[in-house]
Design a protein around this nucleic acid. Structure first.
Lengths: 232, 232
DNA sequence: CCCGTTGCATGATTTAAATCAAGTCCGCCG
DNA sequence: CGGCGGACTTGATTTAAATCATGCAACGGG
């Protein structure tokens, strides 16, 4: 396991796995810790939803197939992120999750989560909060796709990653980009070429520095200014 | 009240208001039925989330302000739809809801919903399911915005409304369009002009018939074919 | 170590939709 | 009834991003 590992304390599901402070009996909410190799699927679109997941180490992409071989990438997962919650409506995963690198993932069977939610009110509240949080995030992303230019989309994407790494205690200014340019494009509604052009432009302005598989944000203020300016 | 009214039986929140079949005691989950005039706000973006809502009659738009006077319209609400769930993460509404016409809306205070969820397991499950359903829907909408052309967006929008009216027992082929062209555009990431051109084009092909404030879908198959074809 | 593949960058051209600009239709109110 | 304003349509032009095309650089397997 070379990927950064997340402490349970800063995991999105922490209050779900450990609902009763100090009570060790609930640690077994997590039935298994799965290891995934790069490219392996954590769950498949259309498959019955057997569990919800928390990323312990590594990064993944969550994507929705468009029925014609293409994929829209709904979000990227960092350590501590929850996954598979969008299947809680119909019992079937509408999306799939694929490891961008070697990963370690905690798995809470759906049934176990439901039993916990019935027994412990805070668990139900945490679950609702997690799903609602992803809903709010998805709505913001829709707004980004509907109304904002390429430069702004890329700037917000970088700042979003920066903030999330920061929240996890890692550098907000310098992090790996484990996804391909084409995958950034599939997330932002742009082509690979457009993503590449915008990144090159940012670099030529001195706002970022690109190295293989990683990025340094050199001027957060300029990026924020770029990201904040609406189209009209 | 001129707008069509929804029977509680086909409301998204039915199993939340009436969790125990035959037990009348839970009917008071709904604390109030509010009336809204066209243009009135049901809740405001940034306001503390005091309640969740179910539309009983009329239609509304749910929109996210973009910080520069513009709005992205997240979804339109029909009778029986739930609203305000995206505030369950942070306790603050990230979006606002505005009546497109005179409306009647059921209101369940947040605290009451939480008490019910604690007391009755199915209520918690219904709540999770409602939020997860909106999450899945929002993700699909993101994919639409990211990857699909104007004609396809409009076709899907019309078919989505058609399906939803159908589910409610009304005509799938003919319904009112209470929102402005510009509002359809704000929902689909298009300008008013583009929406108008696409609708005119559909009409000239004989796929739809537009009348003031309403639409008839004349060729669902052609619309479906248009909506299903991905960009690549 | 070389070569083929894969990911990325960048230039030229095309295109879909935005923008700019009239003009029409209708409901409303004086 | 008649003029006004808001909603919508339609046309001309511009523009941002897609598409098409090419080249480069790093990596990995033989």
């Amino acid at each position: 396991m070379t990927a950064l590992q997340m402490a349970c304390g800063s995991c999105a599901m922490h209050r779900l796995c450990h609902p009763l402070t100090g009570a060790e009996g609930w640690l077994d909410a997590v039935q298994a810790r799965r290891r995934l190799e790069r490219g392996q699927k954590l769950f498949r679109a259309g498959a019955p939803q057997a569990a919800i997941f928390a990323v312990r180490a590594g990064t993944l992409k969550v994507s929705a197939p468009d029925g014609a071989g293409g994929h829209f990438i709904v979000r990227f997962l960092l350590p501590g992120d929850a996954a598979g919650l969008d299947g809680l409506a119909g019992g079937v995963h509408p999306t799939e999750a694929v490891a961008l690198e070697d990963c370690q993932v905690c798995e809470i069977p759906r049934v176990r989560a439901e039993i916990l939610a019935e027994g412990i009110p805070t668990v139900g509240a945490v679950l609702r909060s997690l799903i609602a949080s992803q809903l709010a995030g998805s709505q913001v992303h829709s707004a980004l796709l509907a109304r904002h230019a390429a430069g702004e989309r890329v700037a917000r994407f970088l700042l979003d990653l920066s903030r999330r790494w920061d929240e996890r205690g890692y550098s907000a200014a310098s992090f790996r980009l484990p996804m391909l340019r084409s995958e950034i494009g599939e997330h932002l509604g742009l082509t690979m070429e457009s993503v590449s052009r915008v990144l090159s432009d940012f670099q030529s302005r001195g706002w970022i520095r690109l190295t293989r598989g990683a990025i340094a944000l050199l001027d957060l203020d300029q990026l924020r200014a770029c990201a904040a300016i609406p189209l009209r």
